[in-house]
């Protein structure tokens, strides 16, 4: 490939890399307030592209930072790649990469772009943009929200700091996980948690059952029924009431109720 011939043609890989580094640093300085972006969909599901559109449109409006999507890779400073890099998109993506002037920044967008995402090991994908072209910035998300997109651009252009860092935790001596809600009988707790999930899904169910546990564990003298009624009156949500009543029924059926 003849991208960046001035660099590749004669120089050794080592100095090539140095020169590329220098060029990219200059580029970043030059494009700080004017970024032309060429979009490559290398086999994404469309959600990323929709979110890129969302970032362009009034609510997020990346044009205020001088970011503009251009129709031809020849105008591009930044190549924004979505998708898991399917086999069929390898050549088009390489052509687009080649077509853009040197140096250029490549951004891998979305889970598929970063690593291949859910498709990472399939027979017809290469598994991420960086398997085919060198990537400078990764924006994870499935899809990344427009705000995440803006953040990613700001990061790539050196305007914001990176928040996510690689972390490695090593189990400390004596690290132990305690059981939550020790006062609630285990069997009842499992039954309530299950019912809550069945009625309201894993997330809202967990929230409801946590609240329910708190109500159960509260010891302010009033009977539990009243506490629940108070709670429901405060929330004023018929559906919540229905679910909580179900939980109450289970409590009433007996503490160790393990029947389904």
């Amino acid at each position: 490939m003849n991208a960046a011939q001035p660099v590749t043609a004669t120089a050794s890989p080592e100095s090539e890399r140095e020169q590329a580094t220098r060029l990219k640093r200059t580029l970043l300085h030059d494009i700080r307030r004017s970024v032309y972006v060429f979009r490559i969909d290398s086999g994404g599901c469309n959600a990323c592209d929709i979110e890129i559109f969302a970032a362009l449109t009034p609510v997020f409006d990346v044009e205020r930072f001088g970011i503009k999507v251009v129709p031809s890779p020849r105008h591009a400073d930044v190549i924004l790649c979505t998708g898991a890099m399917t086999r069929a998109m390898r050549l088009p993506a390489l052509r687009a990469f080649d077509a853009a002037p040197d140096p250029k920044i490549v951004i891998a967008y979305g889970a598929c772009g970063c690593t291949g995402g859910i498709f990472h090991d399939l027979y017809c994908v290469w598994g991420g943009i960086d398997k085919i072209i060198p990537v400078d910035v990764y924006i994870p998300g499935c899809p990344p929200t427009p705000a995440a997109t803006i953040y990613g651009f700001a990061l790539g252009l050196g305007l914001l700091d990176q928040k996510l860092k690689a972390t490695h935790h090593v189990e400390a001596e004596g690290e132990q996980v305690t059981v939550t809600h020790p006062r609630i009988p285990y069997g009842l707790r499992i039954a309530l948690e299950r019912e809550a999930r069945r009625m309201a899904g894993y997330r809202q169910g967990r929230e409801i059952v946590e609240n329910f546990f708190i109500l159960m564990e509260q010891d302010d003298g009033a009977p539990i029924r009243e506490r629940i009624a108070d709670f429901l009156a405060r929330e004023n949500d018929p559906r919540l009431a229905e679910i909580v009543h179900r939980l109450e029924e289970i409590c009433a059926r007996g503490n160790g109720g393990t029947d389904q």
């Binding site: 003849n2 088009p92 052509r95």
Partner: peptide, 18 residues
Amino acid sequence: GRRPKPRIGAEVWACGYA
């Protein structure tokens, strides 16, 4: 002086197709 040398003879851009 600020620009890399021009690159001549790049493939014509046909929307990514050959």
